[in-house]
Computed example of a mutant assay.
Amino acid sequence: MQTASTNICERMGRSQELSEFKRGTVIGCHLCNKFIHEISLLLNIPRSTVSSIISKWKQLGATATQPRSGKAC
């Protein structure tokens, strides 16, 4: 018999980062006046991810991943 915590860990997978190309594709679609839900359906990405990519692009002007906090190797 498995414990409840084991079942939760098996069901919940870690998400992968989107590639630079896919983020650029999202921005390209946005610049072509596509709606967020259209981009989401076209690229098979959740709407929240698409809106997050677009808002970060508007703030920072780039789609590259930003460094995370923590110990540098």
Rank of each mutant, 00 (worst) to 15 (best):
M1F: 07
M1R: 04
M1I: 09
M1V: 15
Q2W: 08
T3Y: 07
T3K: 10
A4I: 14
S5G: 01
T6H: 04
N7D: 01
N7A: 07
I8Q: 13
C9A: 15
C9H: 12
C9F: 12
C9K: 15
E10R: 01
R11Y: 13
M12Y: 08
G13Y: 12
R14D: 02
R14N: 13
R14Y: 05
S15M: 05
S15F: 07
Q16K: 13
E17L: 14
L18N: 13
L18K: 07
S19L: 02
E20I: 09
E20Y: 14
E20Q: 11
E20K: 03
R23Q: 06
R23A: 03
R23N: 03
R23V: 01
G24I: 04
G24V: 05
G24W: 01
T25L: 11
G28K: 14
G28E: 10
G28W: 06
C29F: 14
H30M: 10
C32T: 09
F35L: 11
I36P: 05
H37T: 09
S40P: 05
S40C: 06
S40H: 05
L41I: 00
L41H: 03
L41D: 11
L42W: 14
I45Y: 05
I45H: 09
I45M: 11
R47S: 14
R47P: 04
S48P: 01
S48F: 07
T49A: 13
T49M: 08
T49G: 00
V50Q: 09
S51K: 11
S52G: 14
S52T: 14
I54W: 09
I54E: 08
S55Y: 08
S55V: 05
K58L: 09
K58G: 00
K58E: 07
Q59E: 08
L60V: 12
A62S: 13
A62G: 01
T65L: 09
T65V: 04
T65Q: 10
Q66V: 06
P67R: 12
R68P: 10
R68T: 14
K71C: 02
K71W: 02
